[in-house]
């Protein structure tokens, strides 16, 4: 199977119904995308498919053939940090950090929308669960990124 991940073509030997999450983690050694709920509910496994955020834990890998897959490792590879990551640092968001790759992928996708949603609309649509309770800082970071 041919996959395009983070701008590189990969040839992967995996069952077609193996979820993308586990192909990324186990076959491509891209462990930044996290497993948590396995039912597409918590958002820890969020990646971009052609630039749009989607959970990867239930998505058969065969479904992403021909799509550009981007993981957290690919958003700023070798280059400067994305504005979202910078805002996360500026507002000291991360605690345990486990949900943060998924959160950052989701916010990057929202930020790329035209027209850009308001901070409040972005917060309402950011469904990544954070058990550490970083939400107050996420709100501040969203405020800085999306404006009032």
């Amino acid at each position: 199977m041919k996959l395009l991940v983070n701008g590189s073509a990969h040839s992967v030997e995996a069952p077609p119904d193996k979820p993308l999450l586990w192909v990324l983690r186990e076959d491509l050694a891209l462990a930044g995308t996290k497993y948590s709920c396995g039912i597409g509910r918590c958002g820890a496994c969020t990646v971009h498919l052609d630039g749009v955020a989607a959970p990867s834990c239930m998505l058969p890998v065969v479904a992403v053939e021909g799509l550009a897959v981007t993981t957290i490792e690919g958003v700023s590879a070798g280059g400067p940090m994305t504005p979202v990551q910078q805002a996360w640092l500026d507002h000291g968001v991360s605690q345990c950090g486990y949900c943060q790759p998924g959160m950052i992928m989701s916010v990057l996708s929202l930020l790329a929308e035209t027209p850009r949603p308001s901070a409040e609309a972005a917060a309402a649509r950011l469904n990544v669960l954070c058990r550490c309770g970083t939400y107050p800082r996420v709100r501040k970071a969203l405020g800085a990124l999306f404006g009032p």
């Binding site: 462990a31 996360w88 640092l89 950090g97």
Partner: peptide, 23 residues
Amino acid sequence: RPQARVDSPAKIAGAALYGIDID
């Protein structure tokens, strides 16, 4: 005084190593 967390840069880059990432 407030300090920037030393583990944040790796965590937001997906480079932090958790137990589940051991290979």
